[in-house]
Simulated scan of single mutants.
Amino acid sequence: MRSRLVWLALLVVFAVIAWFVAEDTTWWWLVPQGAFILFYAWWSYPNRGATTTHAEVTALDEGDPRRRVIIYWRPGCMYCSRLRRRLGSARRSATWVNIWADDEAAAFVRSVNQGNETVPTVVLEGEAHTNPPPELVRDSLAAGLR
């Protein structure tokens, strides 16, 4: 709930800024501003990509390949976006858990990061890594595909 309120507040702030800028400039400037606001709203929306929960991940069997690499992330995080980009097509093999859509996932991330919701937090074969190098995650994903 907290993340949705923050998201909504940021969206309102962007809209107010766009309104004031639009009053001082010509109407055509509204198009790129509107596109930016819509993109930011989509990129930072708290429920974007909310498909897997922490409970579903912990219920998986040890041998299940979806449990090999688990990535805890949140929308709007530039480090999460960087990891997603750097993994390329291998990112589809990982299990992604949105901490803004799942309170249990957020609690897990806080438990392994001294109370901070630092993401991306990646669990590789049962061990949590905070903001690991993309190469480490990619190598782990490649090992699971063999």
Rank of each mutant, 00 (worst) to 15 (best):
79 Y>E: 02
45 Y>N: 10
48 R>P: 14
59 A>N: 13
36 F>H: 05
132 P>H: 00
135 E>Q: 14
110 R>I: 08
67 R>V: 15
1 M>W: 13
74 R>K: 13
35 A>R: 01
137 V>K: 00
132 P>V: 00
65 P>C: 02
36 F>V: 13
38 L>I: 10
97 V>C: 05
126 G>E: 06
77 C>W: 05
2 R>D: 15
47 N>I: 01
78 M>Q: 15
40 Y>D: 12
54 H>R: 00
116 N>A: 11
5 L>H: 13
21 V>N: 09
4 R>Y: 15
81 S>D: 12
123 V>C: 06
45 Y>A: 15
70 I>W: 08
17 I>Y: 03
91 R>V: 10
90 A>R: 12
116 N>M: 00
117 E>F: 02
28 W>L: 00
26 T>D: 05
1 M>Q: 08
46 P>L: 10
85 R>V: 06
82 R>Y: 11
106 A>M: 04
133 P>G: 12
40 Y>I: 03
124 L>C: 10
3 S>V: 02
19 W>H: 12
92 R>I: 12
30 L>K: 03
106 A>L: 04
58 T>F: 10
37 I>R: 00
41 A>P: 10
107 A>S: 09
31 V>A: 09
134 P>M: 02
42 W>I: 07
129 H>L: 04
84 R>M: 03
34 G>K: 01
14 F>W: 14
143 A>R: 10
72 Y>L: 11
94 A>Q: 04
118 T>R: 00
13 V>G: 10
66 R>S: 15
91 R>Q: 14
48 R>W: 14
138 R>W: 11
141 L>H: 13
27 W>N: 01
129 H>N: 12
114 Q>A: 11
9 A>I: 05
99 I>V: 08
50 A>W: 04
53 T>A: 12
50 A>M: 02
115 G>I: 03
38 L>M: 12
67 R>W: 13
25 T>H: 02
11 L>I: 02
28 W>I: 03
16 V>L: 11
138 R>P: 06
52 T>D: 15
145 L>V: 11
12 V>A: 05
2 R>C: 07
12 V>S: 03
1 M>R: 05
122 V>L: 00
1 M>L: 09
145 L>N: 15
4 R>L: 15
23 E>M: 07
37 I>M: 02
41 A>M: 09
58 T>M: 01
58 T>P: 04
71 I>D: 08
82 R>L: 05
63 G>L: 00
4 R>C: 09
98 N>Y: 10
81 S>P: 02
73 W>I: 04
116 N>L: 05
80 C>W: 02
72 Y>H: 08
15 A>G: 12
7 W>H: 15
113 N>Y: 11
103 D>E: 14
128 A>Q: 01
116 N>S: 10
58 T>H: 05
56 E>D: 13
144 G>C: 09
103 D>W: 05
101 A>E: 08
124 L>P: 11
67 R>K: 15
70 I>Y: 12
8 L>I: 11
31 V>D: 01
71 I>T: 11
64 D>Y: 07
8 L>N: 08
120 P>W: 10
137 V>E: 09
72 Y>S: 07
103 D>V: 13
61 D>W: 04
86 R>Y: 01
45 Y>V: 15
41 A>F: 06
129 H>R: 03
19 W>Y: 14
132 P>C: 01
127 E>N: 04
135 E>I: 01
97 V>I: 07
13 V>L: 01
